[in-house]
């Protein structure tokens, strides 16, 4: 077990194989060797670390996992796994169903937490948590990016293009279609 200490000074006893998915923690453990010393995580709050390391316990947790890790699905029946242990994209795709309505609901409900987890994933260096699907259309099998209007709506982004830029965008899209 490894003892982690969060920015708000909470302590977490966590299994080594779970925390070692974080490149940052893995490197720390390698540097320190076998030790009972706690590992400080000054950029991760306890609420975020809970989301990252603990198995899901309720609907909110499942939502967060699914959204960030692109694995949760309304049809998943397998036992809950900590997000940090989630598997490859291929495996993910097999288990994912149409979740776009749910996606939308989640993103509007809990954006603050979404971004906190993204920042934590970046800090902890956990690639699998830097989910790709939050810009992607969950209803599409090919997993292409969402249309710009949809991304703007989901993240309160303003279309601030100049007419010249709009014209350039139109040309780009025509080229992409004619290819």
């Amino acid at each position: 077990m490894v003892l982690l200490v969060t920015s708000d000074n909470e302590q977490f006893q966590t299994e080594k194989d779970i925390v070692e998915r974080s490149v940052l923690i893995k490197n720390m453990l390698e540097d320190v060797g076998e030790s009972d010393q706690p590992i400080p995580l000054p950029n991760v709050s306890s609420s975020v670390l809970k989301k990252v390391t603990q198995p899901s316990t309720g609907p909110t947790e499942i939502d967060v996992r699914g959204r960030y890790l692109s694995t949760a699905s309304t049809t998943v029946e397998s036992p809950s796994r900590p997000p940090i242990l989630e598997q490859s994209q291929d495996e993910t795709r097999k288990r994912t169903t149409d979740i776009s309505e749910w996606d939308q609901k989640f993103i509007t409900v809990d954006q603050e937490m979404l971004f906190e987890i993204i920042l934590a994933a970046n800090y902890l260096d956990i690639k699998s948590l830097l989910c790709r699907r939050w810009l992607q259309d969950g209803s599409q099998h090919d997993q292409g990016a969402r249309p710009p209007e949809e991304i703007r709506k989901l993240f309160n982004i303003v279309n601030d293009f100049t007419p010249e830029e709009e014209a350039q965008i139109k040309k780009e899209n025509e080229w992409a279609e004619d290819r």
């Binding site: 810009l135 991304i151 703007r152 899209n173």
Partner: peptide, 16 residues
């Protein structure tokens, strides 16, 4: 995505 990379890159660059 590898398959739709042209559309995807354009879409992302056309948000703002």
């Amino acid at each position: 995505d590898d398959v739709t990379h042209i559309e995807d890159a354009f879409r992302i660059s056309q948000v703002c």
